[in-house]
Design a binder for these strands. Structure first.
Lengths: 150, 150
DNA sequence: TTAAGTGCAAAAGCTTTGCGGGTAG
DNA sequence: CTACCCGCAAAGCTTTTGCACTTAA
């Protein structure tokens, strides 16, 4: 990521910390900084490997905790990525997903307008598109209720 | 899932097995059957818990292996679902993903037309949409090359 | 018959937890 | 000063591997 964009993100981070009353620590800054440099959807472990270069004494635990914190603050996002904890889906026809950002629940929806999305040309990536899916990200009914009670 | 749809899917499975020359075993049928009943994007472990009721002697290993096989045959799909192996994304602005179904790699793309997707009304789910992302699923350059060589 | 699948046990990964010492505000 | 954070070690999960036995075609 470019330096200017990085500066802006670090500022955003500082502001969010003040808003939420959480301290800006050396480790948090270093971890954010590292994620901004890593461009390909790293796992927590990959971030750890990269950040150890800057702070040799840092622990895995801190990296896991901090990434979660940064995502909660909205300074980075969690990517929906096929990973170790795979979920299986018994629908093979075109459909879409509501993904709750609080509880990670996924709800199926069908919508004719979404089905008609025009697929962009991906040949410059050498990528052949077979099908697609729209993820609508937000907050589900249950989590919204819990929020209201707080 | 309704009985008719289930029958059709079990037939599809049988056909795919013949095509690929792999045996239709008792376990595979039971596991597929179970996934078709389970409607909410189950993990392998949740499928195991459900299928043990039918075949008490079945092992976790078989469930893991079979789900992978079924997904390879295209009889079920893997859902991109936030799970244990979370990936983090340093982009917080609107963008989309090319997801390779062979190697699980994710490539970022931006596309003005995709950005303009009309979000459907999700109020009947009590779901509040905050943003969205289009996943284009297919085969990446590297995997396509490997396929050609085989 | 025979290639492939299955179950078991053990290993390998990944992530979380509890706790004493340390640090930002 | 004081609440919150950090590192460590250990526990807890989930998933994969190697091997001998069993089974579908």
């Amino acid at each position: 990521m470019q330096d200017l964009a990085k500066e802006k993100r670090l500022d955003l981070f500082a502001r969010k910390c003040r808003e939420h009353g959480i301290p800006v620590t050396l480790q948090r800054r270093a971890i954010l900084n590292t994620v901004l440099d890593l461009d390909n959807h790293p796992t927590a472990d990959q971030v750890f490997d990269a950040v150890v270069g800057q702070i040799p004494s840092i622990s895995r635990t801190t990296v896991y905790r901090t990434l979660d914190t940064l995502a909660r603050l909205g300074v980075i996002t969690k990517a929906c990525h096929p990973g170790n904890t795979v979920r299986y889906d018994n629908r093979i026809e075109l459909h879409h997903h509501l993904v709750c950002q609080r509880c990670d629940d996924v709800i199926d929806i069908t919508d004719a307008r979404l089905d008609k999305v025009r697929i962009p040309d991906t040949s410059s990536f050498g990528f052949e598109v077979i099908d697609f899916r729209v993820q609508l990200r937000g907050v589900c009914r249950r989590c919204k209720k819990e929020e209201d009670q707080t």
